[in-house]
């Protein structure tokens, strides 16, 4: 069991190492380096030389990679080009803002998804299922920027209930954030909930068809007791991994949603840094977002391992 956990962690680290290589090599191989892309037309003479000196682009690529990687491990991402400030200072408030947005959405999304998934599975092909399933399928197929735009149009403009666009500085306090994030949270958790509810639904349906549930029914276990004792623990376990994948997959969707609502989080920083051609920040973001993805998957893997009774008994037997 411990070996298995260590192996998973090791694989995650290898993945991160490859990601760092890919982003570094990608920036290296694609035409133009950080200086020429950043300075654009002014990339000649003294300005170019100074920039190359400043970023240390005159040393060989592998040395720069080692240098950069060892700094990243120590938690130092270097300097951003456009703001001329340490990337850590740029990232700090953005990470906090995105974390607030994501955690509120997840806190609302996961319980809601479980409830909806169970309802749709237990009343399969009946009215509640058809109604909820139609809504979930719609909200998971339509792109984030469309549902977000429609939310603004309907809730903010036509009904006038809430402000449509978040107008807060990136270092806003927690309470300033909370009052402004209702619509972004709705937009993100709508899609997330839809995805997870579908997974929970199919998982519950699979378990309901299994032998031991049939056995419980034949034994005369009351319906709801059967659902809570036999079906749900077994159905929600495989859903954990899928939920993790869904959350990780939504990292891309969060970028778009943050742009639509003008929310000062990591996602908007992605767009800003790419528009400003600020490659050091882009590299830092790639590593951070990939770490989140790998981290979430790792946690899900470990949770499944811990909760899986079969693996526990394996350990005892040994």
């Amino acid at each position: 069991m411990l070996l298995l956990i260590l192996k998973r962690i090791g694989l995650g680290l290898i993945t991160l190492f490859i990601v760092s290589l890919i982003t570094f090599v990608g920036v290296e191989v694609l035409p133009g380096d950080a200086c020429t892309t950043y300075l654009e037309r002014e990339a000649y003479g003294a300005a170019l030389d100074a920039c190359i000196k400043r970023l240390g682009l005159d040393v060989p690529a592998y040395e720069r990679y080692l240098d950069w990687a060892s700094n990243v491990i120590r938690g130092d991402f270097g300097y951003s080009l456009s703001g001329e400030m340490p990337i850590n200072e740029v990232l700090g408030p953005r990470v906090k803002n995105s974390l607030v947005l994501a955690s509120v959405s997840i806190l609302i999304g996961i319980p809601l998804a479980i409830v909806l998934g169970i309802i749709t599975a237990l009343w399969r092909d009946k009215l509640p299922d058809i109604m909820i399933s139609t809504i979930t399928i719609f909200s998971m197929t339509i792109p984030e920027f469309i549902s977000a735009t429609l939310l603004i149009l309907i809730v903010a403009i036509w009904l006038g209930w809430l402000p449509g666009i978040v107008i807060i500085p990136s270092d806003a306090t927690f309470y300033e954030l909370l009052s402004n994030i209702i619509l972004p949270v709705v937009a993100i958790s709508m899609i997330m909930t839809a995805h997870m509810a579908r997974m929970v639904r199919s998982s519950v349906i699979q378990v309901m068809a299994s032998d031991y549930v049939q056995m419980a029914i034949l034994k005369g276990v009351p319906y709801w007791k059967m659902v809570f004792r036999h079906v749900l623990p077994n159905a929600l376990l495989p859903a954990i991994n899928v939920v993790a994948l869904t959350i990780a997959w939504l990292l891309g969707g969060v970028v778009v949603t943050e742009v639509v609502f003008n929310y000062p989080g990591l996602g908007r920083l992605v767009i800003e840094s790419i528009s400003n051609r600020d490659l050091p920040v882009v590299q830092a973001l790639a590593i951070i977002l990939a770490s989140i993805y790998v981290g979430i998957n790792l946690i899900a893997d470990l949770m499944t391992l811990m909760l899986n009774p079969r693996l526990k008994s394996l350990q005892i037997r040994k």
Binding site: V19, I22, G26, S275, A286, A290, N297
Partner: peptide, 18 residues
């Protein structure tokens, strides 16, 4: 796997911007 763990949007934006 490593490519899968880079958010698609970041990778696409990087390619397109360069």
């Amino acid at each position: 796997d490593a490519f899968l763990s880079i958010p698609w949007i970041l990778a696409m934006l990087l390619i397109v911007s360069l």
